[in-house]
């Protein structure tokens, strides 16, 4: 059973080596002539103003929260989707209705977030 995963580990090992070789090759081949101007932050040729350690708009956290709420539901749909055909021939319509109830509850939550102005971007 675990044998199936040997290729996955090989792929992962290969990807790590490949990524490392690509990123660090320029340290070997490229020149090293740093100057103060070269190492300063790029701001279209102006002197950089302030740093980036400032507060980020709360809207982005809201997006992250919606993502967590709705992306979790995907995982609840998958087992049902995989079993649907088999269970439908065994049990019939209740299999579909149970999922419909779940989706409607999900949609209600979505409409609530919509009404509250959660999806207003500007």
């Amino acid at each position: 059973m675990l044998e199936q995963y040997i290729p996955v580990f090989l792929v992962i090992g290969f990807a790590i080596i490949f990524a490392g070789a690509t990123v660090f090759s320029s340290e070997i081949f490229g020149p090293k002539r740093p100057t103060a101007e070269k190492l300063s932050t790029y701001e279209s040729g102006m002197k950089p103003i302030g740093t980036t350690n400032e507060r980020i708009s709360v809207k982005y956290y809201l997006v992250a929260m919606f993502f967590i709420i709705f992306d979790l539901e995907v995982i609840f749909v998958y087992p049902w989707a995989v079993q649907f055909k088999k269970m439908f021939s065994d049990i019939g319509m209740p299999v579909f209705y149970s999922m419909l109830v779940f989706l409607i509850v999900l949609e209600l939550g979505y409409l609530y977030a919509y009404k509250k102005g959660g999806f207003k971007w500007d």
Binding site: S26, E27, G30, P34, L39, S40, P48
Partner: peptide
């Protein structure tokens, strides 16, 4: 490949 790898101070 032959360019300098610049990591800014910030």
């Amino acid at each position: 490949l032959l360019k300098e790898d610049i990591v800014p101070n910030q």
